[in-house]
Amino acid sequence: MYKIDPAKTELAREFKDKPFGPHSAELQKVLNVMRWEPVEGKYVLVNTVPHKEWCLAQLPGKRGIPVKLHEDVKFTDLGEAEWYIFKMRWKKHTGQDLALD
């Protein structure tokens, strides 16, 4: 199973610069590993102002209860939202904060 190498920050840089694909083959591996997370706790974005604002949220993993909104984490740019989620997942998979520059 592919493991995300915390030393390969160039992949994170690639994602930051272009959060929507197509991506390089290795970055795609990183993203696929990250995106295989189970439904429970999965980060999603709730569109709080149509086409203008998105709130970070997590799926509860159980049907019929509210999606957990992180009201203090909102974005006005979807690319920034993708980058935020990417950084959190990077830390979860590598155990290290992602520091670029």
């Binding site: 959060p19 929507f20 694909g21 993203l31 999965k42 980060y43 999603v44 974005l45 709730v46 569109n47 709080t48 998105w54 949220a57 509210p66 999606v67 979807l78 939202a81 993708e82 989620i85």
Partner: peptide, 11 residues
């Protein structure tokens, strides 16, 4: 190929 976006209706 991107984070799932939920509309208020989806939520």
């Amino acid at each position: 190929a991107s984070a799932t976006i939920l509309s208020p209706s989806d939520a």
